[in-house]
Amino acid sequence: MPPAKKRARTYDPAKTRTAVSAQFRAVRTAVAGLTPEQLALPTRLGEWTVRELVAHIGMAVTAVHRALDLPEPARQDAVLLDWPFATVASAPAIDDFTRDVVERHPDLDAYLAGIERSLPELLDAHPAGRLLQTNAGALPLADYLVTRTVELTVHTDDLNAAVPGLDVPFDRQALAAATRLLADALAAKAPGSATEVRVPPYAVVQCVEGPRHTRGTPPNVVETDPLTWLRLATGRLTWGEARAEAKVSASGERADLGALLPLMS
């Protein structure tokens, strides 16, 4: 008898919306006081400075605005788990767009303030099921907002790494949604039940082909914290580095995820 197909995880649209708004507000508040010298600091994102990174965070949210300005697709032709694997193809265009935003919006605080004002009005005007054309295909607005939690939490971590002492807080619901989406993406990339990946307190998934366990502790277990998981999934941290720094524990012959990571890069 074939194994039962895993059910797709669902997200509460109201909680997702609140999480996106809260994480964006936390970023906007933190970067409002950055000096020109801080905005010129390098980041771990290639040639981007903090200024480009902040502009990109705004751009990641206004992707909702741009998608809603387009005609609604006739039908949904993608699912939420397609999104993590579709982003790499858009990297050159994203870089160009980000640099254009920097040129057009020298006052980043005003730029972010405008986004914070407009986003609630925009979301009030459209139902959660409204289809959007995204880089992954046609997705409901509610699902696309889940992808924004990944953008916001990952880039919040990038900001904190770039600016000593900035310490932008993470909204718990935004971090939870981002962690779960990328954990589910791993399970989609390597389907199976031989390995259990735990990211407490937000996610547990089973993945990797091999013998199934039926009770008790599985023979292959990986465990890490949410921020380490986001860094691994997005290429900010390699599997070898995480193991060497004791950021992740792994036991069992099928617990090495190095060949499966990153999921996004």
Rank of each mutant, 00 (worst) to 15 (best):
A255C: 08
T217L: 12
N220G: 06
E253M: 05
P226C: 00
T228M: 04
A203E: 14
E223R: 13
G258R: 06
A233Y: 02
E253S: 13
Q206P: 05
P218K: 08
E253Y: 03
T214K: 11
L257I: 04
P211I: 11
W229M: 09
N220C: 06
T214S: 14
A250D: 11
D225R: 09
R254F: 03
A233R: 02
K247Y: 00
L237E: 05
A203W: 09
W239P: 04
G258T: 03
S251N: 12
D225T: 11
V208Q: 13
L230F: 03
H213Q: 14
V205F: 07
E245H: 05
W239C: 04
W239N: 07
E209G: 13
A233I: 01
E253D: 15
A259R: 09
T214D: 15
R254I: 07
V205A: 10
G216C: 09
A242M: 03
T234W: 03
C207D: 08
V208W: 07
T228W: 01
N220W: 04
T238H: 01
V205Q: 05
A246Q: 13
A244C: 02
L227D: 09
P211T: 15
V204F: 00
E223S: 12
R236G: 13
T228S: 10
R243Q: 11
R236S: 07
R243K: 10
T228G: 08
E209A: 15
V204Q: 15
P219Y: 07
V204R: 15
R236V: 11
E241D: 14
E223L: 03
V222T: 06
W229Y: 02
V204S: 15
E223P: 03
E223Y: 00
A250Y: 03
C207V: 13
H213F: 15
R231W: 06
D256E: 07
T214P: 02
T217N: 10
G252E: 07
Y202R: 01
A203M: 12
L237S: 06
S251M: 09
V205K: 07
P219Q: 12
K247M: 08
S251E: 15
V222M: 05
E209H: 11
R231C: 06
C207R: 08
L232K: 04
T224C: 11
E253Q: 10
D256R: 05
T228P: 08
D256M: 04
Y202F: 14
A255G: 11
Y202P: 01
T224D: 04
P201F: 07
G235F: 07
R231A: 14
V221A: 08
R215M: 13
G258W: 00
S251K: 09
T238Y: 02
H213K: 12
R236F: 10
T228K: 03
A203V: 08
R254Q: 14
C207Q: 10
T224R: 03
K247G: 09
R215C: 08
W229P: 05
K247C: 01
Y202D: 12
A242S: 00
A259M: 02
A244F: 00
L232F: 01
E209Q: 15
P219N: 10
A244N: 10
A244R: 11
V204M: 13
